[in-house]
């Protein structure tokens, strides 16, 4: 058993863990029920919203703990509102309790997910570094790779660079090349590879199906954002859409080369989603409708009542568990 400040910190951490879990359930339910209806909003707006969703368990968890901490303080302006929140043996932490067990499981699982993601980042970083060593920059600093697969992509986590294979370059007209270059430059400018990795790390705490849905949605929003950056320079949207389609057709030529890995992966509903990706990008590009914008700051305000609910639920959950264990 631990007493004092260390016990307070450990108790707070167990409340954070509970709040994170609760928020994961709430966000998962929201994505499951309403995830598909978000497509009518602008790409940049959706992008912000997905970040908010992925960060919300941690944000709300910290806010819930802050509320609990201050609920007993005389300096807290809304003291009366938080009378419901009261601490149970905050300066006492028992290692053989359910608090300790749940905190232990949460820390172990969290550490495992973080280490797995960091390992993936390091392995991929090394491979991209190798690839980079064999690439030659052209006059636009677009790195050219001497390979048969028609590909263009942005890679690198800390200094992202744009790559295009010689096969793809040889099949594009000057205008199409510019479209691909502008698209990839936007990914590099926004540091999208690193952001994708970090987003994946955050969503790894969600159930697998929800994590995939969130990652797919974020990926689509990033691509649409990069397409929108091209439109700011090249106003012929049909030309951009045709370039997308042309590169897709070329990539289908190497389809068989990658088939083995793709088939061995058992992607849950992935083929349908991919169909949506390219067609959604084209539909979004060609759409004349005025884009709706999500009220992000208003949604952020929802974190306050949610934190209160989490803090109250932690309290309620505590009562339920202690009651059932002692009776």
């Amino acid at each position: 058993m631990i007493f004092g400040e260390t016990a307070v910190v450990l108790n707070l951490l167990s409340i954070v863990a509970f709040s994170v879990l609760l928020m994961i359930v709430v966000v998962s339910a929201f994505i499951h029920l309403k995830g598909d209806s978000l497509s009518r909003y602008s790409a940049s707006s959706r992008r912000q919203f997905y970040w908010l969703l992925a960060l919300s368990p941690w944000f709300v968890g910290l806010l819930a703990v802050t509320l609990l901490l201050f609920s007993g303080s005389q300096y807290f302006p809304l003291l009366g509102v938080f009378e419901l929140l009261h601490w149970h043996h905050p300066e006492e932490f028992v290692f053989s309790s359910w608090h300790s067990l749940s905190l232990g499981v949460a820390v172990a699982y969290g550490s495992f997910l973080i280490m797995r993601s960091v390992k993936k980042l390091i392995v991929n970083h090394c491979r991209v570094k190798q690839l980079h060593a064999l690439a030659e920059p052209d006059k636009n600093n677009f790195f050219q790779l001497d390979a048969n697969a028609p590909m263009a992509f942005t890679a690198g986590y800390f200094r992202p660079q744009c790559y295009m294979t010689s096969t793809l370059h040889s099949q594009l007209t000057a205008e199409e090349y510019t479209i691909v270059r502008l698209h990839e430059n936007e990914h590099a400018r926004c540091a999208d590879p690193f952001k994708k990795w970090f987003f994946q790390l955050l969503t790894a705490f969600f159930p697998l199906a929800i994590a995939r849905q969130l990652n797919h949605a974020m990926s689509l929003a990033m691509e649409q954002n990069a397409d929108a950056a091209v439109v700011r320079v090249i106003t012929d949207k049909a030309k951009i859409a045709m370039t997308l389609l042309k590169v897709k057709r070329l990539s289908l030529g190497i389809h068989d080369h990658y088939r083995l890995e793709q088939d061995a992966l058992c992607h849950f509903g992935q083929p349908d989603r991919e169909q949506d990706t390219i067609s959604e990008r084209i539909h979004y590009l060609l759409s004349d409708e005025k884009e709706s914008v999500l009220p992000i700051y208003f949604i952020m305000l929802a974190a306050i009542p949610l934190s209160l609910v989490c803090a109250l639920s932690a309290d309620l959950f505590h009562h339920v568990i202690e009651y059932s264990l002692s009776h």
Binding site: N124, M151, A152, F153, T154, A155, V180, H183, E184, H187, D192, P193, K196, W197, Q200, A211, R212, N215, H216, S219, L220, M222, E223, A226, L244, V247, K248, S251, I254, H255, Y258, Q262, L265, H267, Q270, P271, R273, E274, T277, I278
Partner: peptide
């Protein structure tokens, strides 16, 4: 995940 880290112009899917 198929759409994970690569920010490709079009995916290989």
């Amino acid at each position: 995940d198929e759409d994970s880290l690569l920010t490709a112009f079009v995916s290989l899917s």
